Amino acid sequence: MNSRKTWAALAVAAAVTVGVPATAGTANAAPKKPAKAATAKQVAAARAAQAKAAAAAKAAAAKAAAAAKAAQAKAAAAAKAAAAKKAAEAAKAVQPVTAVGVVTAVDAAAGTVTVQAASGSKLVAGTAAVFKVSATTKVTKDDEKTTLDALAAGDKVTVNGVKSAAGLFAAHVNATSPEPVAEPEPVEDPVVDPVEDPAADPEPAEDPAEDPAPAEDPEPAV
């Protein structure tokens, strides 16, 4: 009998427990506080990450700018060196030249004058230098402005110009006509006295056999 009462009490208690709504236990529980500490930590971490990313981007930009500036400086230095080298080669390729000598040939059609250079620059001295004469070349002869076809072989000449890989180019040609050669004066035939012919008969000598003239007696001394 007692056993039945015990089981019945247990069954009632279990039924009551099962019938209680779940919200009842939740309502009786203590309310939870919001996780403010966790949120602040996440915000700080995010800000730190942003700052780190910004610093990295700034460093990368500065590095890229420095590299670009260095590349520009290097390119400018290379261009300057190339220009200096080109100028040096050009200066070496074009050299001033002077030839002093005598005209040996003139080709007006080809626009050249050949000079047997007795002196002047080492590049042409002692050689037959062929100068190209252009429309800008100043040509004078006997102190008068003229053209290339007025020059002639035998003229004394001084040529100033330049020498390049393409040849000799005249800037100024100053020629002088050769001095006229004086004709020798005619020589008169010398007057020669006639020479007697030794084969001619000599004049007859006096006969030594003739008596000499008598000598006069000297006067007596007083």
Results as ranks from 00 to 15, higher is better:
residue 149 D to A: 13
residue 144 E to S: 14
residue 100 V to D: 03
residue 102 V to F: 03
residue 124 V to Q: 03
residue 70 A to E: 06
residue 88 A to D: 08
residue 94 V to C: 14
residue 80 K to V: 01
residue 95 Q to D: 12
residue 144 E to F: 13
residue 145 K to I: 12
residue 72 Q to W: 11
residue 68 A to Q: 12
residue 110 A to P: 05
residue 100 V to E: 01
residue 116 Q to L: 15
residue 119 S to C: 06
residue 122 K to D: 14
residue 133 V to A: 04
residue 128 A to V: 01
residue 142 D to V: 07
residue 122 K to R: 15
residue 141 K to V: 05
residue 90 A to T: 04
residue 94 V to N: 15
residue 67 A to K: 11
residue 81 A to H: 04
residue 68 A to P: 03
residue 145 K to G: 15
residue 76 A to T: 09
residue 59 A to V: 02
residue 74 K to I: 12
residue 152 A to S: 08
residue 115 V to K: 02
residue 119 S to Y: 08
residue 80 K to E: 06
residue 113 V to W: 04
residue 72 Q to K: 13
residue 76 A to Y: 02
residue 124 V to P: 07
residue 74 K to A: 15
residue 80 K to N: 10
residue 107 D to K: 01
residue 84 A to Y: 10
residue 118 A to T: 10
residue 93 A to F: 06
residue 126 G to A: 04
residue 103 V to C: 06
residue 92 K to E: 11
residue 64 A to C: 03
residue 70 A to R: 02
residue 58 K to P: 11
residue 138 K to W: 09
residue 102 V to G: 00
residue 94 V to P: 15
residue 92 K to N: 13
residue 99 A to L: 01
residue 78 A to C: 12
residue 110 A to H: 08
residue 76 A to Q: 04
residue 147 T to P: 07
residue 75 A to G: 09
residue 85 K to V: 02
residue 141 K to D: 05
residue 87 A to G: 07
residue 94 V to I: 13
residue 101 G to H: 03
residue 146 T to W: 13
residue 139 V to N: 02
residue 100 V to R: 05
residue 150 A to C: 08
residue 139 V to R: 01
residue 96 P to E: 04
residue 99 A to M: 04
residue 153 A to E: 14
residue 143 D to N: 11
residue 123 L to H: 00
residue 111 G to W: 01
residue 153 A to H: 05
residue 127 T to S: 07
residue 145 K to P: 15
residue 101 G to E: 01
residue 153 A to C: 02
residue 103 V to F: 00
residue 154 G to D: 09
residue 109 A to S: 10
residue 90 A to H: 05
residue 137 T to E: 01
residue 120 G to I: 00
residue 65 A to Q: 05
residue 140 T to D: 05
residue 110 A to T: 05
residue 83 A to T: 12
residue 72 Q to H: 10
residue 148 L to P: 05
residue 136 T to N: 08
residue 106 V to H: 06
residue 152 A to W: 00
residue 73 A to C: 07
residue 114 T to S: 03
residue 73 A to L: 13
residue 118 A to H: 10
residue 74 K to T: 15
residue 94 V to Y: 08
residue 118 A to L: 11
residue 89 E to I: 07
residue 127 T to H: 10
residue 79 A to C: 12
residue 132 K to L: 00
residue 66 A to V: 01
residue 89 E to W: 06
residue 145 K to T: 14
residue 131 F to A: 02
residue 78 A to T: 04
residue 107 D to C: 01
residue 96 P to D: 11
residue 88 A to F: 10
residue 104 T to E: 11
residue 127 T to P: 06
residue 125 A to I: 09
